[in-house]
């Protein structure tokens, strides 16, 4: 049996944490792009689209992320595609992220008082002008704190990719545990690394929120 020193464990976990970060970035960038597309489509005024996106959001918010991962992994296999754990995790986490961000951003757009729409119309601005010069700048400012806050959920969500065999931080932890039988140390270290990734983002999100609040906008 190979002996693992504490440094070996830490080093292996940190190496695996790279994949947690990469997967988080994929999910966040992919999810934000898709979420933006859905947000725009929702605003387009097409009722059918609006209802469908609403259902999409409710389904992803109302089912376990673990199930979404299983369905992406095994479901695509049943459809005849051979999908790697990488692809399945990226797809599932992207869809999951897009649903939540789409919902967050809708809230931000709706938080801009309706009277501003009427006022802009009275001033002779059309829909796009109102959106661009009046609504979006305010909604964007509102959206930053919750969006940063949600990135923490994305990072934590990537831990579930371990269940379908994707070797990231959590999976590396369970593998090291099987080899060393030092579960307390290993899972404490795993938790600590996640904490080091997530806590700064949480703090930053709270700071942004407070600054927004102090600026008198809410």
């Amino acid at each position: 049996m190979i002996e693992f020193t504490l440094w070996d464990i830490v080093r292996n976990l940190l190496l695996a944490a790279r994949w947690t970060i990469v997967l988080s970035l994929i999910a966040f960038i992919g999810g934000a792009s898709l979420g933006l597309l859905f947000t725009v489509l929702r605003l387009s005024g097409n009722r059918l689209l609006k209802v469908m996106i609403g259902i999409y959001v409710d389904v992803f918010q109302g089912t376990p992320l673990l199930m979404q991962l299983f369905l992406a992994y095994f479901g695509t296999a049943a459809l005849g595609f051979n999908v790697s754990a990488w692809a399945a995790a990226s797809i599932a986490l992207t869809l999951f992220t897009s649903a939540f961000l789409c919902d967050i951003w809708r809230g931000c757009l709706e938080a801009v008082p309706r009277g501003q729409w009427h006022a802009s119309r009275v001033l002779g601005m059309d829909y796009l002008q109102t959106m661009r010069h009046v609504i979006l700048p305010q909604a964007l400012r509102l959206s930053v704190p919750p969006t940063v806050g949600f990135s923490v959920q994305v990072i934590k969500g990537t831990a579930l990719a371990s269940v379908i065999g994707f070797v990231e931080l959590t999976k590396a932890g369970t593998m090291l545990n099987n080899a060393t039988f030092a579960p307390f140390t290993i899972f404490a270290l795993v938790a600590l690394i996640y904490f080091a990734l997530c806590y700064p983002l949480s703090r930053y999100s709270r700071y942004l929120e407070r600054r927004l609040y102090d600026a008198g906008m809410r």
Binding site: T170, F195, S202
Partner: peptide, 23 residues
């Protein structure tokens, strides 16, 4: 509160289930 909110639930679960018996 902060430790719980900033780590994945699955890691918390593993820590309790696999880690506590070590004590």
């Amino acid at each position: 509160v902060e430790l719980t909110r900033n780590t994945p639930f699955i890691v918390q679960l593993f820590f309790i289930f696999f880690g506590l018996p070590a004590f």
